[in-house]
């Protein structure tokens, strides 16, 4: 799966689970998803499950930090880095 396909899947996941009719493209990529109320702690856990199960990227516990998961842009950057290092999942 290339980065574009990953981003499309991520967009679909967000729109189905977190955005409540809002468009993924309208979200400020730098805003905190938790502070803005888009995602809660259980949401982060389900996002990690989605990344492992649907995208096939292994997420280590130590990587589940706000710096990697609390904004759209940080998630993009994290996924890009993981794909470049071929850190495949499960």
């Amino acid at each position: 799966m290339n980065i574009q396909a990953v981003n499309e899947k991520l967009k679909e996941f967000f729109e189905n689970n977190f955005l409540y009719g809002e468009s993924f493209d309208d979200i400020n990529g730098d805003e905190s998803l938790i502070d803005k109320g888009y995602v809660d702690s259980i949401g982060i856990i389900s996002l990690v499950a989605f990344i492992e199960n649907a995208i096939g990227i292994k997420v280590y516990d130590s990587e589940i930090v706000p710096e990697n998961f609390d904004s759209i842009n940080s998630i993009y950057a994290y996924l890009k880095k993981k794909m470049n290092t071929q850190d495949k999942a499960v």
């Binding site: 982060i44 389900s46 990690v48 516990d61 589940i64 930090v65 706000p66 499960v90």
Partner: peptide, 22 residues
């Protein structure tokens, strides 16, 4: 109640706090 791929998980303290902060 919880959809996770990780039945055993160790969260960094910053992530734990972030979930309760608001």
């Amino acid at each position: 109640q919880v959809m996770t791929s990780k039945p055993l998980i160790k969260l960094n303290y910053t992530m734990v706090l972030k979930g309760f902060e608001n």
